[in-house]
Design a protein around this nucleic acid. Structure first.
Lengths: 338, 338
DNA sequence: TCTGCTAGTGTTACCGCTAACAGCCGCCGG
DNA sequence: CCGGCGGCTGTTAGCGGTAACACTAGCAGA
């Protein structure tokens, strides 16, 4: 069967089911939606007819008529990140019981693309939108404002939400990590991260980090950025580069766990004394770390719970506060001396 | 701003733009869709009005009227797999130029859930569907058959497609890997994989693998399965378990790269002679492998190209053959002796 | 001058479904 | 015996757009 179905009949509509079962379209509609009173025998007849015909309702028409759409737009920067899939899991787990369905859009960290994705989604008149981050184009903010649906911005709460925000303070997260590092006695600290001007959360973490360093009279002794390629590999390479330039550096702070893991592998391969002579830390708390020879220090980003809470707000299960702050826990692992 | 927009006006429609710009709704529609002849001044007026009002078209109404929907349903088992995001990248890269938009649905490897997801998607009358795998419930197959749209089943071609299939032969992939392993002189071979009865592709690989072993008069000396948890960690644990049970095993074939990477880390930590005394191989060709201390042997699953070809078929850019087979390349890495 | 054509615009009739309301029937209490 | 009510079903009028066609003016060619 190579052709797109040599279908004899036209596409099925309520009318077809109605004729096949001998009742009005309205009654069929009621049966299929489980709404209103329909007698048991009629219900059976209709379901039988729908089943044998293989009728699939047309939600487009349904949505237009009822002015109700069971879709929730979810706008995220990337899928290859391991962090957003987990947010999605949280969202789905809550939405599953509600009849609402998530629809994902990916922006690749591009503001213009985000604007387009939001526009496209809004044009389907979803019941709500969940969007990563608080930074959007003016046009996007305007559209979201006008949409008249609940908007939940997730992951970050350092800024002004359009509607509601659920997330952690990345600035605070960076600060906390810096404080822990300083408390452990490290002094020559370097930063390794992504070259992404639009990854505002990574940026805010670094800002918070440097802020705390400054308060202790320290500054970063070096920094290194990358973009593209295997994060694990880049982590190794960047670490090698930093260590070559600064043999006396005693701590490496990575903007995410993946490059941190690469760095850790490099240090172990070089036989460096971790965490004695050199400490390392990442960010996110990804599951992958559990499998490494040594546990990288990290900070859990509350991804699952962020997804759940956001979905609960959309589903009306949560009293919506403007900002819902979650608090990540620092996991010292084996790469900060205790 | 905590309330879902205390909007003064009702939701905007074409009529609003039409009144604001002094032309008919039809002309506004033409301008906004860039269809038909509209004079430059009129076009300007309309665009200006739409922009200042902040009008977002209602695709639901548009789709109903035009009987055209620019959506392509993509049904995949999981997002946390690293393999499907790459397929998505391929799909998006092709669809981006066409006005078509992918909508993702996730099944978690559950056939019933897949059926539901397909039903939901079809009820939005998409222009095409891309679905991972060839195994579906009868009801799902029936619905897809009736839908009258192009259906592309991806990843796998060992079976009967509904419409079109784009993918690799996992059975052949398993066979090839076995042949390479045997050719390299390994004889005591064990398998480590996921406990997922519905991961048909992993199953087929194993079948092909054992088939080739049998042809050489060999059988698996041991096997180990897992489910859930950090794949990397599970890989370590399972590898430790197998090696404890069978100290003389000389090759470990993993059903995916992630557990393979865990196994590799374990072997290296134990100081085993890889690939001299023991060889390892995974499957997928994930980017992560580039960052490991040693390169795991693997087989690229052509994910990006599968996504592209599938999207091309949907977009009508590719003459649709029933089966489009792609051929993965074996990447021996450093874990099979050469 | 008239016809024919084209560019630009408006009119009409839906698309497939559902909200809202209008029947109809049988049964109850007064 | 009647009004009223609840259970069930049908009818009507859209939802907000677009296809298809109708119309108008302006201009070229006969």
């Amino acid at each position: 069967m190579t052709k797109p179905t040599p279908d004899p009949r036209h596409t099925l509509t309520l009318r077809d089911v109605s004729e096949a079962s001998g009742v009005s379209e309205m009654t069929v509609s009621r049966v299929l939606r489980n709404r209103g009173d329909v007698s048991a025998p009629t219900r059976e007849k209709v379901l039988e007819a729908a089943r044998t015909l293989g009728y699939v309702p047309n939600k487009i028409a349904g949505a237009l008529a009822s002015q109700r759409v069971n879709l929730v737009g979810v706008v995220i920067p990337s899928l290859s990140n391991m962090v957003f899939p987990e947010v999605m899991t949280g969202i789905s787990s809550v939405l599953d019981g509600t009849g609402l369905q998530p629809v994902v859009g990916v922006t690749n960290y591009l503001p213009d693309r985000e604007e387009t994705v939001i526009y496209e989604m809004l044009s389907w008149r979803p019941s709500g939108m969940i969007i990563a981050g608080l930074e959007h184009t003016d046009a996007a903010r305007a559209m979201l404002n006008r949409a008249g649906i609940p908007i939940v911005e997730i992951m970050d709460i350092d800024g002004d939400p359009i509607n509601h925000a659920v997330g952690i303070s990345h600035r605070r997260a960076g600060r906390q990590m810096a404080e822990a590092i300083i408390a452990a006695g490290y002094r020559k600290i370097a930063f390794l991260g992504t070259q992404m001007p639009n990854d505002h959360r990574a940026r805010k973490r670094l800002e918070g980090f440097e802020e705390a360093l400054a308060k202790a009279g320290l500054t970063l002794v070096d920094r290194e950025f990358y973009s593209g390629g295997s994060a694990l590999l880049k982590g190794r390479e960047m670490t090698a580069a930093i260590l070559a330039r600064n043999p006396d550096v005693d701590f490496l702070y990575y903007s995410n766990d993946m490059i941190g893991a690469g760095g850790l592998l490099h240090c172990l391969a070089e036989g460096l004394d971790v965490p004695g002579k050199i400490g390392l830390a990442g960010f996110n708390g990804v599951e992958l770390l559990d499998g490494l020879p040594r546990k990288l220090a990290t900070m859990d980003a509350c991804r699952l719970e962020i997804g759940k809470r956001a979905a609960e707000i959309i589903a009306g299960k949560l009293i919506p506060a403007e900002k819902l702050e979650l608090f990540p826990t620092l996991q010292p692992g084996d790469t900060i001396r205790g």
